[in-house]
Design a protein around this nucleic acid. Sequence first.
RNA 1: UCCUGAAUAGCUCAGCCGGUUAGAGCAUCUGACUGUUAAUCAGAGGGUCGCUGGUUCGAGUCCAGCUUCAGGAGCCA
Length: 483
Amino acid sequence: MSQRKKIKALLESTETNVEITVKGWVRSFRNNQFIALNDGSTNNTLQVVVDFENTDAALLKRITTGAAISATGLLVESMGKGQRVELKAKEIEILGDCDPESYPLQLKNRPSLEFLREIAHLRFRTNTFGAIFRVRNSLSFAIHQFFQERGFVYLHTPIITASDAEGAGETFHVTNFDLANPPKTDTGEIDFSEDFFARPTNLTVSGQLEGELGAMALSDIYTFGPTFRAENSNTTRHLAEFWMIEPEMAFYDLNDNMDLAEALLKYVIKYALDKNADDLAFLSQRLAEEEKQKPQQDRSEMSLIEKLEFCLNNDFERLTYTEAINILKESTPNKKKKFQYLVEGWGTDLQSEHERYLVEKHFKKPVILTDYPKAIKAFYMRQNEPDANGNETVRAMDILFPGIGEIVGGSQREERLDRLEKRMDEMGIPKEELWWYLDTRRFGACPHAGFGLGFERLVLFVTGMGNIRDVIPFPRFPKNAEF
RNA sequence: UCCUGAAUAGCUCAGCCGGUUAGAGCAUCUGACUGUUAAUCAGAGGGUCGCUGGUUCGAGUCCAGCUUCAGGAGCCA
């Protein structure tokens, strides 16, 4: 029996008149004669030509959209237009039937993304989702390669933690209790001392604090794993379970941190452009067609590929929060009161519309905002000296991407024990619980920095998709944990 | 969680000012054709109009509540 070949390889090969075997799923069966076969190695299909006059009618009937088949025959130059090579089948075997009456995925119907979300177990079989998940795979691999090339250590931080580290974000509780009848203390409260971990625990909202511990010995580490937030967020940019990349680097300041983040983003985008040219061309085309439905002024000036290349070829705009506020104050939409939230004073957080104005209208490229007001940022960020106006800021940086908003959030960390403890007191962060974190500031503390990159937001940007639920295989969001 | 909108055939949608038997395209099935490329041609089957209640002689259509979905906002990555 001839060896099975992947369709991607066959379509790229120049060798013809050789006997090969392909296995895959039928995308369409035209004219009782032409099977468009896909095996997920590429979006393109191999045309398998069936000699229908000499094939059992019962077998022909079983070649239906979605059926898994094996085909063996000669790879020949195609007699028809539209493809270079095709497989002249000598033998067709049905590996798995697919009942056309009940199979929900009929591609000719142009199913909507919303419908495909309901059949997420089958949506991998569409061109769009095939492309998305191959790109997601490449980005994932490129992230590891980027850090590995630079000597970073991939550190596995815990999924179950006892600390709600940043105090930000609702957590999912982890317990082994019988929820109908948990042990109670004398005062009627739930007695966690009898639970599996003998204390309240939750799914991690960030691996950062543990990451810092690693960096204080290994110099440069990164995490890449799932993260959980139990917030009731219903947006196109949030998930209850998402993947995050969190590097942490000893002896880095904020500028080093920004340089690394920018280099990482450019590296992985370049990698996808090189490795997934076909998939991105398809997704670019898909986006262009979607944009045609929009009114002229809402359409993007650049195609997806152009946007990605633009990102590679331009430095991200770096400015401080204070500079951004001044630009926004003087901006046309602010003066004409077009913003829903007008920018008046210093100190409040930027709204989505403000970030969007800076990125999409003013600079028209990725923007890195630094030195945010201390009051609106986490306790562990390094405190700057107050400026001439007495404004207090921290060494934070957020990278804002067009259409996505915040894709990276990071900072130089506060390494000075006294400043850190004072800030924790002010913000009501329990120092006793984080004794291990504070130990790094007691024993050989050094300047260090890190950031978090939302992986799905990156995939969203690179694929040009509009909803984060479409770039993770099985999205978790409020009221939904199907599959 | 808040705001706005939506829910009609397997899918994508139409259904006007409330009116008698609920429409199209695609998909599916049957047949024809056989180098097709979203194949083509002819025919057929397919509906608890999201759920509950209300108004009315009469509700897919109007009203209320609920559910789910989408877009936007907040929180953020």
